[in-house]
Design a protein around this nucleic acid. Structure first.
Lengths: 358, 358
DNA sequence: GTGAAAGCGCTAACAA
DNA sequence: TTGTTAGCGCTTTCAC
């Protein structure tokens, strides 16, 4: 009975609301083929004779048929939707990453559902549950702390395929069955600080977002420690700013007011670095003449400001692209059980804001 | 027959893959109620006795039941998904707007599907078709040119509910049946330029992205013209930069090299303004001592740099929130036929980068 | 190469 | 208050 009921409605729909409400059954009827054949024309064209296919296509066009993906998804038991959870889009790092994610996904015929967690583990749980209810086929996510994440544990328990972006799986400890795409945070940070040291800096301070909110920040601090220790230089406590974007002149002032004020600042992300540079300027210090600043991330904006921001650059769009590629590979085929941390190359840009100490 | 088949599988699933593959039928069976009752517990709890509901909830928890939204959506003929199309996330304006969008949508129980068009009308068409196939209930979008948009015409023809963000519907011309949420681009730009004039500037140049790619840019330029004309000042040709982020020192140099070089620059977006400031610095000019720069957008970053960027600020997150609110209202109820342009208040921040001419 | 029919997971009449 | 039943639009065996 289905085909006829709808067919009766078609005339109205075709004029007032083309494409909306027109089902494959309508198309089949108009093309004088069965529903099955009509379906095959779109999903398995090689199974149907050329002339028949043409008739169906014509009918589809005439009726402005638009396939309802919901029906297909429900039937197929796979949605071809990837859930993406990022901390925030306010940091350009993730916005840049999105470009790669969208590009790679749509090219592969996958759709995206985006949510942001704002670095909050509770919200992470909630948002992921939400994506799961939509039956996303897999997830691409950046969590606050990969090594201690309720949400990742849950995903593992449920064997939901996912790939981490930016979070870096480390060999030791739990979770090394996981997949991640990132740079080597510790090594790259160490190289960045080494560059500062090579420029002659001895007292180097670290400014970071809340360590609790980001394992990357902790790994980068570890890289700083490595570099300082290797050169027998004093490891200073990190200045942890609550927000990655707040201007915290007071804390910076306290630092530079010391007898033995740092001559260089390593900031664990570029946004922070830009804020710190402004703070320093407000305190009457010139960057890089009086004090050097090194960021981390390589956001496009850094190259836009003057002097250009020295930074440890990550390939942000690539991280997105690669993470999607990995996820698709897992979705498609052999879900190799032992996980893998993909490390993408970083690049040092020791540009305008770093210079030898005065 | 359905219920029994699945029930046989449950034990395996419950241990290996909780929640995955468990259907409402399984829950109903475990709770010894009918499928309908189980469904009602979640959709219309008031229709079911407390004790029964409890049994169902217990069973659901025991089996780690996770509702499959696909089934519900297909049946309900509405997805509770809103499609969002933004030009790019690389401009913080849209990233900030996303915050408002996500907040408002999730609070109302709607999900989001995001795509970006990169200011390209062809890609706009493609991406929207894509969203439509997902049967999004409505759309929130920013198009390149609202007044001349194939994609908007199509949406109108198909009576798909949508609300524009940032694009500003103007009274005259076609398309005034549409809904938009934005600031008043022309008026606010005029006020911004007025502030420049009030500060003593007479020769004011405009730097903009490609006019073709953004009706906002054109409207803001019109606001500039209004202000200049009203004061009997010369309207200069706009410098149209191909990219909103490229540094175009050459073009800026040509401008400032003139005898009668402008003393102030009005940039139609903040990102551009930051680039222009850097260009000027590279040319040996100090901002704001030698030349003033006024941006447009009010992105958070502008307040972070030193000196803070003078700008015409839009309430970006609010634009997202309000646009979603409007869309939800249309989705819910009376789709008033005559459209409406909601204008949100802008704010002038004549901060650090604007000062009287030297 | 094509058709008939079952059913993906869920909701909403309609009955009881 | 609860159960029975008929689909939502699509894909896919299984026949022919």
């Amino acid at each position: 009975m289905p085909p006829h009921r709808r067919a009766a409605l078609s005339p109205r729909l075709a004029s007032a609301d083309p494409g909306h409400g027109v089902t494959l059954a309508d198309v089949a009827l108009a093309a004088k083929v069965s529903l099955a054949t009509a379906s095959r024309v779109f999903s398995h064209p090689q199974l149907v004779r050329e002339a028949t296919a043409q008739r169906v296509h014509d009918a589809a066009r005439r009726l402005s048929f638009r396939p309802n993906l919901l029906g297909a998804k429900l039937r197929a038991q796979q949605t071809r939707i990837i859930g993406v959870m990022l901390p925030t889009l306010d940091n350009a790092v993730f916005a840049e990453c999105w470009r790669g994610i969208e590009e790679a996904s749509l090219a592969a015929g996958y759709s995206l559902m985006l949510v942001t967690s704002n670095y909050d583990p509770a919200r992470e749980r909630e948002r992921v549950e939400y994506l799961l209810r939509h039956r996303v086929d897999g997830l691409l996510l950046t969590v606050a702390n990969a090594a201690d994440s309720i949400v990742l544990d849950q995903l593992d328990r449920e064997s939901v395929p996912y790939v981490l972006a930016y979070n870096q799986i480390t060999a030791e400890g739990a979770g090394n069955h996981r997949y991640s795409v990132s740079v080597d945070n510790r090594v790259s940070a160490c190289e960045g600080v080494n560059a500062l040291i090579a420029a002659g800096h001895r007292r180097i301070a670290v400014v970071s977002g809340a360590f609790m909110a980001s394992d990357r920040a902790r790994q980068r601090f570890a890289g700083y420690e490595d570099a300082m220790r290797a050169h027998g230089l004093p490891v200073l406590d990190a200045v942890n700013l609550p927000s990655h974007t707040a201007s915290n002149t007071a804390q910076i002032r306290a630092l530079v007011a010391q007898d033995d004020a740092p001559t260089a600042f390593f900031c664990t992300n570029d946004l922070l670095a830009i804020g710190v540079i402004s703070d320093l300027k407000r305190l009457g210090l010139r960057v890089p003449q009086d004090v050097s600043v090194l960021g981390y991330d390589g956001i496009a904006l850094g190259a836009l400001v003057e002097p250009p921001l020295a930074t440890v650059a990550q390939p942000n769009a690539d991280i997105g692209t690669q993470a999607i590629a990995q996820l698709l590979a897992r979705l498609a085929g052999a879900p190799s059980p032992q996980g893998h941390a993909t490390l993408l190359p970083h690049a040092l840009r020791i540009d305008g804001t770093v210079r030898p100490p005065p």
